[in-house]
Design a protein around this nucleic acid. Structure first.
Lengths: 251, 251
DNA sequence: CATAATTCTGCATATGCTTGCAAATTGTGG
DNA sequence: CCACAATTTGCAAGCATATGCAGAATTATG
């Protein structure tokens, strides 16, 4: 590796950091054949960019994809229950339900009644356990677990979902913008959520007010493809969605 | 484990504490190749942060306010530690592991270290969440969830497992009889467990003394096909297994 | 009560950080 | 082609931190 150019070197560091690796000063200075000081200065630059966190002896990736999904789910806020309980009346026994991952949908899974004739299909292990605890027939979608959202992603998960004919898909929301549509932070998650929407008759998004008007990296659906939005946002702040045919349900 | 950075080490401790694990000074000093004193100082730092409670010989997670359903599942109190901790030395980073469901294997999943180069494949959603919390690459096997054991069963699950080449399969035990072999209460679970054993180089059963000498409805494996048994039963009570070529590991 | 294990304390050492500065490299304009 | 400025890089001195060790104090355990 004869990349003596500062930018190329820093790019290499950036790549490793985004992969979750920790960088060690001494190792890097050897590998790139520059002095410790140079590496230190590079890492300081990356810290200024917000990509790295300098610590003694090197640098670490800036606090993981912002808290694991597990923590977010475990620390479910009471506000989510309001959204979840608004979703409950839409569910009838005998329906086939597709449940996404995420804190809000997880809250819904936790308050589901028994539904002896229904089937829940979900790529989220935490949601599956909650449904199983409620005594509901549960089908788990397999795949590699996405660290950010704790749901199964990948080709197998999408294929498995394409074989399902569901009545309602309840989608968690990373972001929802009137123009961009429903977004997800991870490409794999976006694909799975899209597959869920495709496999079901109605697609319903649960989104707290803090998720509205924001855009994530990947698009899941256009707003036209969304049948209903359950939110705690003010009625006037969701007119742009209503104009695109999205039914609004206020919590 | 090349975590030579002090902050990375403390982060690892933090991660384990938030998963409900107790930390042992001597074990940590070995694992991270630093002196006991250094680990002690680290834990004192974490105690000052409020995430640890130093006790004689190590530290414990500070009891947290409320327990949501997921916390109860993912952070359940480790009671089967004895068996699980005996399994730990068999695991090396880079291995592909197949983890069954059940309380004992779940306890193993909860004390797994980070294993950045390993892959865990499991049909048990609770186990998958525990591995994900440890930062391990996790592959979830999909299927209908068996109500009795909370693992994916069915043709799809068996097929998915047949495409895996694992180093070790850790099997939970419903029953283990010298003549009948390893048993399961549910036909679907038996098929999945058998597929796990077939897909891996070594098959290791974790069984408390109460599971030995009993027979369940369905056979998973003959004892000849079992490579190792980890149990807390007395040495004289397992001679019949040893005669069939099963390596015994006493907890 | 005696023994062993564990914890605390102080200290020497090693390692890493900061600052300032000089040499080398690159870019620019005459 | 040269002079000049800006950037990058390496080096050294002073300071701060982390680590490991040894001895004293404390706590468990039989």
């Amino acid at each position: 590796m004869a990349l003596t150019l500062p930018d190329a070197r820093q790019d290499a560091f950036r790549a490793r950091l985004t992969r979750g690796q920790t960088l060690e000063l001494s190792a890097l200075s050897q590998e790139f054949a520059v002095s410790i000081d140079t590496v230190r200065r590079d890492l300081k630059t990356l810290e200024a960019e917000g990509v790295a966190r300098c610590v003694r002896g090197g640098a670490m990736p800036v606090s993981r994809p912002s808290g694991t999904a597990l923590q977010r789910v475990a620390l479910a806020a009471p506000g989510h229950d309001a959204l979840a309980s608004r979703a409950l009346p839409l569910i009838e026994d005998g329906m086939v339900l597709l449940l996404d991952g995420g804190a809000t949908v997880h809250a819904l899974a936790q308050i589901l009644p028994s539904l002896p004739n229904s089937l829940v299909v979900t790529p989220a292990p935490a949601v599956a356990l909650a449904c199983l605890a409620a005594g509901i027939d549960t089908q788990l979608v397999g795949g590699r677990l996405s660290p950010s959202g704790a749901i199964s992603v990948g080709h197998g998960a999408v294929t498995a979902l394409s074989d399902v004919a569901a009545d309602i898909a309840f989608l968690g929301t990373c972001s929802l913008d009137p123009a961009f549509g429903l977004g997800a932070d991870d490409l794999g998650e976006a694909e799975v959520k899209r597959a869920m929407a495709t496999a079901s008759h109605r697609s319903i998004a649960l989104a707290g007010a803090d998720k509205l008007g924001r855009r994530s990296r990947h698009r899941v659906l256009n707003c036209q493809d969304l049948d209903m939005l359950i939110t705690n946002a003010s009625p006037e702040s969701v007119t742009l969605y209503k104009e695109q045919g999205v039914e609004i349900c206020h919590a």
